[in-house]
Design a protein around this nucleic acid. Structure first.
Length: 270
DNA sequence: GCGACAG
DNA sequence: ATCTTGTCGC
């Protein structure tokens, strides 16, 4: 996959003010509505909990049950010393059809709100190595849940012009409509509203959801929800639907989970 | 000055 | 993100 909007490629050498200005430009062209053709039901991974399997080279369409299903990718980063490893995995249903990666030196430290300038370059390089063009990409981090509505998932989605969903484990900004500090049942979603920290959105606008993909049986112990938001060309509600549909018995959606372990695997080899 | 802050 | 042992549970 190649960059479609070169003017948005993250440049770590920009000043903070320039980075923030670029994010505003990105948010201006980002589409937080459905424009993707992916039916959550078509990407749903159901049945018993099981690991995604690597597709075999000789698989023909005849015995491939997922042949007509959408391609969904997951991307995740790991760090080795001063280098970032970005790993992309493409799934069709539960089958891994392609993997790609890139290793690049980290130019700048992590700064909340400017994550895409630290990790975006490696991600784009990994996608440049990818032959497939996925119908949807899950990115590890926020999308619209961001100070300028231009988080990592939005930045990557707009630059590649591919539908993306942001999946984060922690909340960057915004206010949950109800407390998340309690045990939420599996399948629950709690709206995240823009607050004073979100400069570009009217206060009260729903910019994402806390999504409970998994929960324990136990009464006292509980799993924290994921924080899901549109990256690009996906609506807020649909972003939550897609995450719930692709969570196969684990907290993380399957594409993200598989990209996670691939990044770990690469870390040992690099 | 103090608190908050994706990965 | 990363540094790390044991431990609870299916």
């Amino acid at each position: 996959m190649d960059v479609v909007r070169p003017e948005f490629v993250p440049d770590p050498s920009l000043s903070t003010a320039e980075m923030e200005a670029l994010q505003r430009d990105i948010a201006d062209v980002a589409v937080f509505d459905d424009d993707h053709g992916v039916d959550p039901a078509a990407v749903a991974i159901d049945g018993p909990v099981g690991q995604s399997t690597l597709g075999e080279a000789g698989d023909g369409a005849a015995d491939e049950p997922d042949a007509d299903r959408p391609l969904v990718a997951g991307v995740d980063q790991a760090f080795v010393g001063d280098r970032a490893v970005s790993a992309v995995v493409v799934l069709r249903g539960r089958t891994v059809v392609e993997r790609a990666f890139a290793v690049e030196p980290t130019e700048i430290p992590y700064v909340p709100g400017l994550l895409s300038f630290r990790e975006g370059g490696a991600i784009l390089s990994a996608f440049a190595e990818l032959d497939a063009d996925p119908d949807l990409v899950f990115v590890d981090g926020s999308g619209r849940i961001h100070y300028r509505e231009a988080g990592l998932a939005t930045h990557v989605g707009v630059t590649l012009d591919v539908p993306t969903v942001g999946v984060a484990k922690n909340l960057l900004c915004g206010t949950p409509r109800e407390s998340l500090d309690r045990k939420l049942p599996e399948g629950t979603r709690v709206p995240i509203d823009a607050d004073g920290d979100v400069e570009t959105a009217e206060r009260g606008t729903c910019i994402g959801y806390a999504v409970q993909t998994r929960q324990y049986e136990s009464e006292t112990q509980y799993v924290n929800p994921l924080l899901v938001s549109p990256g690009h060309r996906v609506g807020t509600e649909t972003a939550a639907d897609l995450v719930l549909a692709t969570a196969a018995g684990y907290k993380l959606p399957e594409p993200t989970r598989v990209a996670d372990s691939y990044a770990d695997e690469l870390k040992s080899e690099v």
